[in-house]
Amino acid sequence: MSAGMSGRRLMKELGKIHNDGLPPGIELVSSGESEADNSDWLLDIRVLDDNPLYKDQVYRLRFRFPKAYPIEPPEVTFENRPDRPIPMHPHVYSNGIICLDLLGSQGWSPVQSAQSVCMSIQSMLTSNNKNERPEGDEQFVKMNKSRPRDIQFLYDDNTV
């Protein structure tokens, strides 16, 4: 009972995933160091249609869940690996940081889950046709030292 809010909730999300499975194109790779610490998940996602930007590619997402999850949002980034590139998108920096309002403390809602966040990112890629990085990507990647959740993004462009 005294375990933090996030531990139990994540256990239940995992249980649900093991029972019902994940939607097409989303796969759970690992769910934390151990049963005691399940605060760091890896998931693979694919884009399901023939969008040439993402065809035949698999991308890896890392979820870091804070103790106060789901009151606070998870920190979600793309991970760069030899077979897992960072997808091209006007809201995805080349270091894997994602600018998505539902992951910010303003846009986050505790009724979201790891699964629903993956689905949002999946659909964010699906609907994109711009082969470009966010404005100022190079500068941002070079300068940024803060963690994604501490960055104040401007969600000024909701069309992409």
Partner: peptide, 14 residues
């Protein structure tokens, strides 16, 4: 749980 979220965010989660 909703009290905690409302105090932090001030919005309806849905």
């Amino acid at each position: 749980s909703i009290t905690k979220f409302v105090e932090k965010a001030g919005t309806d989660p849905t």
